[in-house]
Structures are given as C-alpha cells and as structure tokens.
Amino acid sequence: MQSTISIFKRSGVQKKRRPKVEDFQATMKLVLKNKVSLTGLIITSVYFILALMDYVYPQYLGAGPGVVTSMLRFNGGFLGQGFPSGPTLAKGWWYYLGTTYANIPLFPAILSALYIDLGYSLMIVLSGAVIGILIGTFSAYYGGFWDELMMRITDIFYSIPFLIMAIAFTTILSYSLAKAHAPINGFSLIAIALIIIWWPTYARLTRSITLSVKSSRFIEAAIASGSSKVRNVFTHVIPNVLSPVFVQISLDLGSIVLIFATVEYLGLGSVIKVTQYTPELGELISAGQTYLPVGIWWPVFVPGIFLLIFTVGVNILGDGMRDVLDPKMRR
C-alpha cells in the first residue's frame, strides 16, 4: 500500500546551516522591524548609555560613586535637616524632579542609582548565565550521575521562593564575609548572593537544549571523527545554546533589576556597614517613603517610574527577540 514516490520528496541540495553570526544579524533585523521591539531597544540603550556616562564622567552628571557625600556637601552638609521639596525648574536641573529625604536632589541621585542598578544587574545575569551554561551543558552532555545531581540541586533551588532565598543568602553571606573582613561592598554581596541562586534557571534551560543537540546527527559525526567531549561541548553545544540564553538574559534582566531593587528596598544592603554611600533605586524609594504619610509622594513615585520604564523596555525587547527566535512565530 505504501509506495515511495521519489519526486514527492523535495529534491535539490540541502540547505547549509547558516553561521551563528548571520543568524543573529537576521534576528536583530526582524526585531528592529517591529516598532514595539525597537522601542524596547531604544529605551534599554538610553538607560545603559546614561549609566555608562555616569560611570565614566561623574563630574558632568554630578553623580557617580559616593554621590550622596558630594551632594551633602552641595547642600551644606545638613544631613537629616532637609525636608523634601517639590519639583522646581528654578534651581537648576538637579532639582527638576524635586528632592527626597535629607533634601537630596532626586535627579542626580536617580542617575547615579541607574549605574548601580544596571551595572550590578547585568553582572548578576551575565555571571549567572556563564555559570549556568557551563554547569548545564557539561552535566547534560556527560549525563548520568552529574546530570542527576544537577537536576536535584536545581530542584532544591526551585523549591524555595526566590525572594526568601535572596534574603537568607544575602544575610548569611554578608555576615560571614564581614566577619572575615573581606573587602567588599554591600551591592557586590547582594550580587554574589543573587548569582548563587540565579544560575539554576540557565542550567535548566541549557540542559534541555544540550540534550536535543546531543542526539543530533552532527554531534554523532563529531564523535565518530574522534573529537573529545570537552571540545564537543565548546564547539557544538555551547554555540547552539547561546541564542536562547541571550533571549533569556534579556527577559531576566528586568526581573533581576526588580529583585535587586526589592532586596535593597527591604534594607538588606545596609546590613553591611559601608562608609561611602551611593544610592540605589530601591533605597531611594525606601528613603522617600519616610514622608509618604504626610502626602509627599514624588520621592516614592519618581524613582519607581524610572525603574518601571527600564523594565518595560527590557521586557518588550526580550519578548520581541523571543518571538523572532521562536520558529513557531516565524512564518
């Protein structure tokens, strides 16, 4: 009954796999074609440029590390005396968004906070991704015991609410490191704690891709030609993992910024005594909250809006990239 008809199979030369770089370029082209994703890209870029400028030329934006110290000098050094004042155009651009607790002008404080938030979040996501990729690909490629172990460990990490875990890890880590007199600031500590609990996401993601790559033909061919396991992982598996991980990073960046801000908002950063104080968006909101009961809303509202716009931008960019990379959506 079943007859094979050769011409019904499409003849012609099999398409060659496109190199990854070109693939990425094609993806970005499609992303840029979509107005929404383009907006996301623009928002994200503007934020990163602002943060970078603030880091490189703190004197122009008047921010950078130790901003509050300098601002206090600007205010005449009256910490705790300044009552927040509303947005005004009269006193120069520092005061466009009003001031917050201790009469610190919001605008420069937010700009320098961007550098902290974006910088550390990017560091967390990238480090988490690198660790996750290495653990995920190798354990899945080697399989057996290592794979099982990795799965169980990630299971444990997944079984604790993320924020609770972040709180616990930051606390314990900061305490023991402070005891050991490690030269480290509060932000880095939170970052380390978040990296420790963030890598399982990427390990799980890369694991599933690795398993499918592992069973594919070109890996079989590579094994047959005597290529070593480590080499295979680096030359064949990891390149395939990169683009979904890239999408995941762009989707996660928003979440991590939010979690970083939340942890700071809860006051975990101040568990460790730091001499040089730099604001962070969550902390700024927390400080602004002091006067909320008397109806002063902008110290809470404004930093939040900055946070919101960034996460929206990153999320729509990530969504756009996922839609493009998802073969189902590509017609």
């Binding site: 939010l258 939340t262 908002y265 909101i285 909320l292 009961p293 999320n315």
Partner: peptide
Amino acid sequence: GVYAMPIFWLALLAQIIFGKNI
C-alpha cells in the same frame, strides 16, 4: 506594565492613591 513594576512600588502606589489620609 504590572509585570515590570516592583511589587513594593506597586504597594506604595496603591497607598498613594487609595491610602487613608494620603
């Protein structure tokens, strides 16, 4: 929008809008 909001900020925002005396 909601997904991109930090929850503590959302709570504060709710307070700013609906809160007693604020």
